[in-house]
């Protein structure tokens, strides 16, 4: 967590996927303060979306933040993705789903609540920095 699912009617080039995955990570972490190693982005392709929609982004995020933060996150995410992908507001749909951190296990540990990452020893010890990532081109 977070797990962002990006759905498009057509396949995106690899370079665009990388850009988008990084953008989503930067926006999410920049606003929430969450560690980058938490941010998963998955791409589904060849989907039939609503008329006129070129991309759908569904964010599964940890529960425990304010409604204002969630709204800000969704709006900023939309704005930045539209900028990057050169989409209008109507061509992008976003939705968020909140789930308690206590229901998620990553790195063999239950996720910390939002804002308590600094208390999380396993995270401070370098969770996800090497082992779960492939060397990228």
């Amino acid at each position: 967590m977070p797990l962002y699912t990006v759905t498009t009617p057509k396949s995106l080039p690899n370079s665009r996927r990388v850009e988008l995955a990084n953008l989503i990570m930067n926006v999410h972490c920049g606003l929430t303060g969450a560690p980058e190693t938490f941010v998963n982005v998955m791409f589904w392709e060849n989907a039939t979306l609503n008329d006129g929609v070129a991309m759908h982004v569904y964010g599964g995020i940890r529960k425990g933040r304010t409604a204002e933060m969630r709204e800000t996150l969704q709006k900023e995410m939309s704005r930045r993705i539209c900028q990057l992908m050169i989409l209008t507001d109507k061509e992008l749909e976003t939705d968020m789903f909140e789930m308690p951190a206590q229901w998620i296990m990553e790195g063999g540990e239950i996720l910390p609540e939002p804002g308590e990452e600094h208390l999380c020893e396993w995270l401070l010890n370098g969770h996800g920095t090497e082992h779960n990532q492939k060397a990228f081109i």
Partner: peptide
């Protein structure tokens, strides 16, 4: 199954399962 290049963790290709 996720085809190669369709899953990322921390902005890099992911090898994780969920």
């Amino acid at each position: 199954t996720l085809p190669h290049g369709q899953a990322y963790l921390a902005g890099k290709l992911s090898a994780a399962s969920s």
